[in-house]
Structure formats: C-alpha cells, structure tokens
Computed example of a mutant assay.
Amino acid sequence: MSGNVHEAREALGARLRDIRKDAGLSGTQLSRLAGWHHTKVSKIEYGKQAPSDADIRAWCLHCKAVKDVPDLIATLRNVEASYIEWKRIAGIKRRQQQLHSTEVDTRLTRSFEPVVVPGLLQTHDYIKAVLAKVSQFYGHDEPLEDGIAARLQRQQVLYRGYHKFHFILAEQVLYTTVGSDDVMLGQLDRILNAMTLPNVVVGIIPISATYEVPTTNFVMFDRRVAHVETITAELTITQPRELVLYEQAFQALVTMAVVGEPARALIRKAIEARSV
C-alpha cells in the first residue's frame, strides 16, 4: 500500500477514534457492542485495517453519530481510489476517455487553472506540446497522436447537450509559453472563440488581483466530485465537507476574475505582446 493511502487510512481512523471518544466508549466496549473481535477497533483507528461500509454504520450507530455516516463512507470509498499514481495510469488516451465519461455526465463543469489552458479549450498544437512535455517527464512511450485525438474528442462536449462550463484562468495562463509563440497565438484566439459559446463562461484573474483564497488547479463536476492534479498523483475528492470548500474557493475566484470585454481585453493584450 502506498504511503499516501496509508496516511489516508490513518486520517480516517483518527476521525473514528474521535467519534468513539466523544461517545465515552472504550475500544473494548465498542467492539463488544458491535460484536467484533476485541482488536478490530484498534486496527481500524490506526490504519492497519480498512473498515467496510457496514463497519462505519455500526460504529456511528453505537457512538450516536449517525449523521456522520455519509461523509465517513465517502471518505472510506475515496481512500483507495483518490490517489492515482501517474505511472500506473494505463496511457494518456485511456485517461482522456475516463475524463470524457465524467464530463458527459456533468451539467455544470467548473475549472480553475493557474498556469496552463484547460484541456477542453486547448488547440491541437497546444495539446501536442503539453503532452510531449508530460510524456517526457513521466517516461511515457505512448504515441502522442492517440492522446491528442482523445483530448480533441473530449472537446465535443462543449457543443452537445445541456452542459455548461465556467472556466477561471489566472492571467499567467495567457503568458505561459507552451510550444512557441505561434502555438500560443492560435491558442489565445481559440479562447476568444470559446467565449462566444452561449454555454461557456471564461473569467480571467488579473495578475494584480488581491489574494483571497488558497488555491491549486482543480475541476468540479457538478457538486459530486472534484479532481486535483499534483506532480505524483491525481486526487479525486468526493467527501461532502471537502466539496463545500472547493465550491467556496471557486466562488471566491469568480469574484476575483473579470469576464466579457475586460477578459477579452486581457487576452488581446497577450496576443499583442506575442505579435511584436
């Protein structure tokens, strides 16, 4: 088991231990009430054994904390799945297909990017340059065209069905050179075109904006899941209490961003800087 998963199990166990202590029960007393072996409570609390959904329900029932069941079960299901090590992802193409499936099932997609253009808005040349760097960094040997085609296929969701999209980009995104100036000029024009779609909102956070909220890049799919990319893993957030914080963070970012003509003006400024 990876260190990240073990730490997540320990964190879940610590929450369950607090619930037990708040109920005034010893580990032995809880084991007896639930009909478990006397060592089970200790193993769960210290991350040595993963509880089942039934264990969570019984734990909360006997500790008079039934209201915590949905959040704890969401945490439990996320422990083994939330850390997807990049080296174990079976190809860029497959990952794009997995994302497409999630996007198709989502009515409102909200995305924040501090450095690069979101995948759904990327041009062919921008995608090629990004995937070339990613493949080099992680040692992937998959043909780039497979990943490019899969990402372009994902973008069809922008034009079909009932989907709505709200992208918030830091102004830095407009100036991070991916590929070359020519690639960036095409990409910036693509963002301007995407802003004309009736179901798409693109906000730009000016470089001089006041700091309001701690952030990293993330995507929210309705209110059911959020994806966060790190260097070594992709986090899949499903716990209701955490999703509330991501939604609060996104709303704070919205207040920092400009939209409409002010946003287009920032993009045109970036285009002019590369056209000199």
Results as ranks from 00 to 15, higher is better:
residue 1 M to R: 09
residue 6 H to E: 14
residue 20 R to D: 11
residue 20 R to L: 08
residue 21 K to Y: 04
residue 23 A to G: 06
residue 24 G to H: 03
residue 30 L to G: 09
residue 31 S to N: 13
residue 31 S to R: 02
residue 37 H to Y: 13
residue 38 H to K: 14
residue 38 H to Q: 14
residue 47 G to A: 11
residue 48 K to H: 11
residue 53 D to A: 10
residue 53 D to V: 11
residue 55 D to K: 04
residue 56 I to T: 11
residue 61 L to D: 05
residue 62 H to L: 04
residue 63 C to S: 13
residue 64 K to W: 07
residue 73 I to T: 08
residue 76 L to H: 03
residue 77 R to C: 00
residue 78 N to F: 00
residue 78 N to Q: 08
residue 81 A to W: 08
residue 82 S to Q: 14
residue 86 W to V: 04
residue 90 A to M: 06
residue 97 Q to T: 05
residue 104 V to Y: 04
residue 105 D to V: 01
residue 106 T to H: 07
residue 108 L to A: 06
residue 109 T to S: 11
residue 110 R to A: 03
residue 110 R to T: 12
residue 111 S to K: 03
residue 111 S to G: 01
residue 122 Q to G: 06
residue 123 T to I: 12
residue 130 V to F: 01
residue 134 V to F: 09
residue 136 Q to E: 12
residue 141 D to K: 15
residue 142 E to F: 09
residue 145 E to N: 14
residue 147 G to I: 00
residue 148 I to F: 00
residue 156 Q to P: 03
residue 159 Y to P: 04
residue 159 Y to A: 13
residue 159 Y to Q: 13
residue 159 Y to F: 15
residue 165 F to V: 11
residue 165 F to Y: 15
residue 170 A to C: 10
residue 171 E to S: 02
residue 179 G to C: 08
residue 185 L to Y: 02
residue 186 G to R: 09
residue 188 L to T: 05
residue 188 L to P: 04
residue 188 L to R: 06
residue 189 D to A: 14
residue 191 I to S: 01
residue 195 M to R: 01
residue 199 N to Q: 14
residue 204 I to H: 05
residue 207 I to H: 14
residue 208 S to P: 01
residue 211 Y to T: 08
residue 211 Y to R: 10
residue 211 Y to Q: 07
residue 215 T to G: 04
residue 216 T to V: 12
residue 220 M to S: 13
residue 223 R to A: 12
residue 223 R to T: 13
residue 224 R to Y: 11
residue 235 L to I: 02
residue 236 T to C: 07
residue 240 P to D: 05
residue 244 V to S: 06
residue 251 Q to D: 15
residue 251 Q to W: 07
residue 254 V to Q: 13
residue 255 T to L: 06
residue 256 M to R: 07
residue 257 A to V: 06
residue 257 A to G: 05
residue 259 V to M: 11
residue 260 G to L: 05
residue 260 G to Q: 08
residue 262 P to H: 08
residue 262 P to G: 09
residue 262 P to F: 09
residue 266 L to W: 03
residue 273 A to R: 15
residue 274 R to N: 09
residue 275 S to G: 00
